[in-house]
Amino acid sequence: MYPIKEVRALNNEVTKMVVEALQISKKIKPGQFIMLRIDEVGERIPLTMNEADPVAGTVTIIFQAVGATTKQLAKMKAGDTLLDFAGPFGNPTQLEGAKRVAVIGGGLGTAIAYPQAKFLYEQGAMVDVITGFRTKDLILLEDEINAHSTSQIIMTDDGSNGNQGLVTEALQRRIDEGANYDLVLAVGPVIMMKFVAALTKKYGIKTYVSMNPLMIDGTGMCGGCRVKVGDGYKHACVDGPDFDGHLVDYDDAMRRGASYRSFENVANDAVDAADAAAAVDAAAAEHECLIGRGK
């Protein structure tokens, strides 16, 4: 059992959770992930590390409540426990030696991009972080990134933060201004990583993308997390999750990523039904029974 030390909603959709896992906290590096299971009937889901504190013995994850499991996870509280919390899985992002880096985070990907940016910045690299969100209420980790990067540009789809546009537009501007990047890291929706990689390819900038495919065991066994890289398939869990952004077949990844979509509605319905039943139970428990009181 793994105790949850802290749960904090970062916005309507995104939750930060700090979990006690001493040995993992000592080992996990930026780019690596953990797999957790809430309870006996739960899925194993992969979540990339946001922060690790080997002194406190904790690992922080940030997730978006989109599926049945993440929705259930978002409802948990400090003091609750997770049945399983395993890791580290995957390989650390190859960050050594980079001097001038752009770290791109799309939506929730920002939570994963942050430790990479922080690590690079602490190693003495110049780090420009470019993040993108649908709207300003969803902006993540703005202060943390400001404290651990050379510069930060935040883009929103609707322009609600006064900076409308895509992360690729901001990256293009930076390159045009003469930023001579030797490395670009991109973490976010597959479609975003696809366009970032297309842009950096034109300039021949080495680019790593962090893939987040369907995954079951995380140990290289099931092949569910296959990602087409160059001519063949790689396992994101043991060969990745970072791959050369110029070799990944993003269309293939998007197609494979959609293969279980029809089940997600069923799972969500099941969670909603359980919630409804729990609400009925709670209402029944709160209802003060007056029968037999002579009123």
Binding site: V41, G42, E43, I216, D217, F263, V266, A267, D269, A270
Partner: peptide, 13 residues
């Protein structure tokens, strides 16, 4: 391992 044949009772499909 994940008892997916009992989805959605078990969460893995």
């Amino acid at each position: 391992l994940m008892k997916a044949h009992r989805f959605p009772e078990y969460a893995t499909p």
